[in-house]
Simulated assay, not measured.
Amino acid sequence: YDSGDFAAHLKRAMDIAEWKDFPKRAKAAKKHGLVRGIGLASYVEVCGTMGEETARVQLDPNGDVSVLIGTQSSGQGHQTAYAQIVAEQFGLLPERVHVFQGDTDMIATGLGTGGSSSIPTGGVSVERATHELGQHLRDVAAEALETSASDLEISEGTIRVAGTDRSISFADLAKRPGVDPSKLNASATFTAADGTFPNGTHLAEVEIDPATGFIRVVNYVIVDDFGVTLNPLLLAGQVHGGAMQGIGQALMEEAVYSASDGQLQTGTFMDYALPRAADGPSFVFETHNVPCTTNPLGVKGAGEAGAIGSCPAVVNAIIEGLWREYKIDHIDMPATPERVWIAIREHQRRHSL
């Protein structure tokens, strides 16, 4: 593992969740006829190893900038992240950066999206191509402003002679007669020699109603290490969504087949239980980031992380409570109310004989 502070995020999650005071909460829950359980899971995964990705960044005739890349968003917000990289380098508003992904009429290469690789590889390619385009535009502007490219700075879609009011806009550069078209675009390719290793700790606290088997997640803490973070809001959304996916797997999601003919009986969302907002907790999410050393941006993949940590954390919390109260040390996923209720009744039946 190239980087990480694994003990730190474990300790921080336990501190936030007030782990040491859990016995008091369990005792209070028992007074109300409920079984409280606590569990955690620390994880580390490898990602960012899909291979090389090429990005093309070009100046549009109106002075906006377009990014062409072979990855393809499926809800991760790549458009926002890629646009942010370009906007920050050029001092542009993000809405002036247009991202085109996975369109084979426009983009010759690309591996698609997978393995939390898009930002660790594609993001680096976008950053490098943007830097190269900036160098090209300085060269064009130097000729227009009759100065040295080293004296120029880029900000707010304008190239300016540092310390003066002499400038030329991106739009005027794009329309400048006789400009070499190759100077208005740039491409870069990046592939990581090694993967990235996001890691973290998920901690869940649940309440189990022995009368019904119903489980409620009452507290949930996540402390993750994703290296350098490009957009904290996007990151939090991915982690929340992934955690809900894992909670759904732990508590309700199941593909059920008929025992007689193998017919799938959960083929629609009328039959297959997906978690809804009411099934999830209010997440406490923090990062304890240590920059990655295997890519120039220092970022670590984040796509699957929420689902990796949440499922075992929730099941561990359920088993902790069931073991302490009934000496039940195993339950198959999903831990539906029916399965929990049956497990408790089986325990009670055995101990009443």
Rank of each mutant, 00 (worst) to 15 (best):
R25S: 04
P312D: 08
G122I: 11
A243W: 14
S73F: 04
T266D: 04
A277N: 10
F100M: 12
V44D: 09
V126D: 01
D279Q: 01
L92P: 00
C292E: 15
A7V: 10
H32R: 15
H9N: 04
M106P: 00
G309Y: 00
G77T: 00
C292Y: 03
D261S: 13
G298E: 06
E156V: 03
S3F: 04
R276M: 07
P23I: 14
S258R: 15
V217L: 07
A335I: 06
L274N: 10
Q135M: 05
L234I: 13
G39R: 15
V35S: 05
R345L: 08
V35N: 06
P312T: 09
G262F: 08
V217D: 02
T336W: 10
V126Y: 02
W323D: 10
E153M: 14
G301F: 04
Y220S: 07
H288A: 11
I215R: 00
G248H: 04
E132Y: 13
E143G: 12
P61V: 05
F190D: 01
A243P: 05
P198K: 10
M252H: 09
G4M: 10
S117Y: 12
R166L: 13
V218F: 13
G301Y: 02
Q263M: 13
R216N: 13
H32W: 03
D5G: 00
D15Q: 15
V218P: 08
I308M: 14
A7P: 03
D180K: 13
A273Q: 04
S116K: 01
E143L: 05
V124W: 12
V140H: 04
G39A: 13
L251M: 09
R56E: 10
I331P: 02
E45S: 07
G178V: 12
P61Q: 03
G70Y: 06
Q89K: 06
E286W: 01
R339M: 10
F90T: 00
E153S: 08
F22R: 01
S260A: 09
C311D: 14
P181G: 11
V65A: 11
R345W: 07
I154W: 05
V86K: 04
A307E: 09
A211M: 05
V221R: 00
T189P: 02
D15L: 12
Q238E: 08
F226A: 01
P296G: 05
D261H: 15
K31D: 11
L111W: 10
H32K: 13
T158G: 07
P337S: 08
I38V: 06
T336P: 03
S116V: 01
L230S: 05
S117W: 02
I342P: 03
I168E: 09
S3Q: 11
D209T: 13
R345D: 09
F22H: 07
I342Y: 13
P312R: 03
A343L: 01
N219I: 01
